Computed example of a mutant assay.
Amino acid sequence: MAAAFDFKKEYKDLYLPRALPMLIDVPTMTFVAVAGSGNPNEDNGDYAEALGLLYAFSFTVKMAKKGDWQPDGYFDYVVPPLEGLWWGGGFDGTRIEDKDALNWVSMIRQPDFVTPEVHRWAREQVAAKKPELDVGRARLVRFAEGPCAQIMHKGPYDDEPATVAALEEFVRASGLESGITDPASPEALMDALDADGGVPPVRLHHEIYLGDPRRTKPENLRTVLRHPVQPASA
């Protein structure tokens, strides 16, 4: 039996960078995404609800292999890691003044066979099994990030500022500057992300979570930190 396709292993440049900064051109990918605001550490808060919806959707698609219907082009795969775009709350890439004022879009990559039709089917399945979830919040978006700098952060999330500072210094030394532009609201960002494969006009601080904080010691967590870049202004 062939092993399930693992995006992390097949695209190591996207998911397993070194603990040293690097430049990368991030291609077009498909995501299921949920936008929201507020402290991600709040018990049973909006962020926790968003994650429940994302995983319910993602595993519904993955487990289509055991149902009576599979999407065209279906193949078995490992559900990719959780990702997040962050802004607001006084967040400047290195520190957060107010986590309650954060804005975020949480998302999980989907195989390219997840079309709008598959998205509608999966939402119907989730709505039937988990009526407490607001499936209308789950958007299917397809966009590229384009030129970025990224680095692997190892350790607690609260220790990220030093890693981000190293990333930003690398960007400056490379003759580039940050391409981060904050949207007006989570809803505005979702509309911007629906770029049908192109690079959206709004680009943000991006994190990819390779460890589960519920099961992993803080010092062993691994998080990809990614910032959009552009040529430095004259």
Rank of each mutant, 00 (worst) to 15 (best):
S58Q: 05
P156H: 09
D43G: 00
P213E: 13
N44L: 07
L210G: 01
A128W: 11
A149K: 01
I151N: 00
V199R: 00
G179N: 03
N103S: 14
V164R: 01
P80T: 09
D6P: 04
P183F: 14
P131V: 11
K217V: 12
L53N: 02
S178V: 15
T30Y: 05
K130H: 05
G197Y: 00
R172P: 03
G84S: 15
L133K: 00
H153V: 15
D196R: 09
D194T: 10
K154L: 13
D194L: 04
K12C: 12
V79R: 02
S178R: 00
N103T: 13
A4L: 12
E219M: 07
A33D: 07
D100V: 12
S37Q: 09
T60F: 01
H206F: 08
D212H: 03
F75A: 12
E49I: 06
V118G: 01
D159R: 06
G38V: 09
Q125R: 15
P231I: 15
R226P: 02
Y77M: 13
H205L: 02
P111V: 12
F143Q: 00
R120W: 09
E168G: 01
G88V: 14
A4P: 12
Q70F: 10
G84P: 03
A234P: 15
R226K: 01
D68F: 11
V135T: 15
D76T: 11
